[in-house]
């Protein structure tokens, strides 16, 4: 069982594993893997704490009720599964600043967290705008050959590649 504690598996083995996993989510749960609606529901649940039942009258939350569902539990499971995998392979570490970030933008923790927060806002907003994320559109949608998902996935990478090049080769070079 040594393979379970190896730090890195071949990306092809991991990808095939995710493909097989999605057979079972379709068969057993009748759902494709996806992650971003969990964040929309969480946001609705938090808003409910402050504003009460009014939140459920918002049009968007009528579609995506602010409650814990299958996909919310899936995202919770990802945290657990990644934790288990990292711990058993000795790869778990508490890190504020990833090394590729620090090599371009330095080691200021507040700056990194601030930019991560800003990036997260774009990501959450864009995921709900396009109707899915790298899992929901990028894997589950493309494997169903959905036109919406192929277009989204292609534009995720176009937007991501342009922004990453701008950050690392234009802004990063100044700093």
């Amino acid at each position: 069982m040594g393979w379970l504690t190896e730090a890195v598996w071949s990306p092809y083995a991991v990808g095939a594993g995710i493909g097989i996993l999605s057979w079972f989510t379709f068969l057993i749960s009748k759902k494709p893997i996806g992650c971003s609606t969990a964040f929309a529901r969480t946001s609705g649940m938090l808003e409910k704490i402050f504003r009460g039942g009014k939140v459920e009258k918002k049009e968007y939350y009528k579609q995506f009720k602010p409650e814990i569902d299958w996909e919310w539990m899936l995202v919770l499971g990802i945290i657990v599964g990644a934790f288990v995998s990292a711990v058993i392979s000795g790869d778990f570490e508490l890190v504020w600043i990833p090394s590729k970030w620090s090599s371009a933008f330095g080691t200021n923790v507040v700056f990194r967290v601030f930019i991560a927060l800003a990036g997260g806002i774009f990501l959450g907003f864009g995921a709900r705008w396009s109707g899915g994320c790298t899992s929901g559109h990028g894997i589950s949608g493309t494997l169903q050959l959905a036109v919406s998902s192929w277009i989204s996935a292609i534009f995720f990478f176009i937007g991501g590649i342009i922004t990453a090049f701008f950050m690392f080769y234009i802004i990063g070079m100044w700093g």
Binding site: V75, L123, G126, S130, C133, T134, S135, G159, T163
Partner: peptide, 27 residues
């Protein structure tokens, strides 16, 4: 449009909605 906004966030943050949950578990 949503894809491009997502893409910008993908690069600025460096994680996506699924992998960020994994990143949290990874520490």
């Amino acid at each position: 449009i949503g894809g491009l906004i997502f893409g910008a966030g993908f690069a600025i943050l460096g994680y996506c909605p699924g992998t960020i949950a994994g990143a949290v578990g990874n520490g």
